[in-house]
Amino acid sequence: MRRQKDTGDGAERELVSSELIERCKSGDEEAWREIVEATHRDVYTLCLRILGNPADAQEATQDVFLKVWRNLSSFRGDSMFSTWLYRVASNTAISKHRKRKRQRLNEAGVDDEVLAQVPASGSVESAAGAKIEVERLEEALALLPDGLREAVVLRDVYGLNIAEISAEQKISETAAKVRVHRGRKRLKEIMFPEDSGTETGER
């Protein structure tokens, strides 16, 4: 998970200082503004990637910051603020899925209708070392079923391990592993549809 900001020189630093957090705890509104300013883009981005649509992501982001504001006094600084913040964000976004129980694609697969919405892959080379267009990758992620998208985003974008994903999704580690596996496979099929036919050779 993105826990620090890359400073550009290879070094990384915490996005929000402990001094800023202390000021915020004592009710300093300017400190709250600075915290929001430094983190809201990343939180919204995480929510959008997990939830797959802007309206839900906007609502989830507000819920996240409301929780942060209310629980800031209990943040002791044992862990990094950004780690704690992103944990709150992924929890909030994932439980939003459960609550709304929106009818979406089930994990059995991406159906043909949805696959047909994916832009043609002409601009993406399918050879080794092919460059992936990030905009298209974001679109493809949004097409994955909820559980698979959550798992792939947490594992492959934010670098959580399987145990952490199983805790976030409240599923077994085996189920989390299966979701990551299926999610990568679906994503590959969406991004490289012309290559998804399997050769049947034996070597």
């Binding site: 993105r2 883009r41 919204y44 981005t45 990030v134 974008v157 934010y158």
Partner: peptide, 8 residues
């Protein structure tokens, strides 16, 4: 994608 934020 980790280092890429979207527009809010």
């Amino acid at each position: 994608l980790q280092m890429r934020s979207v527009d809010v």
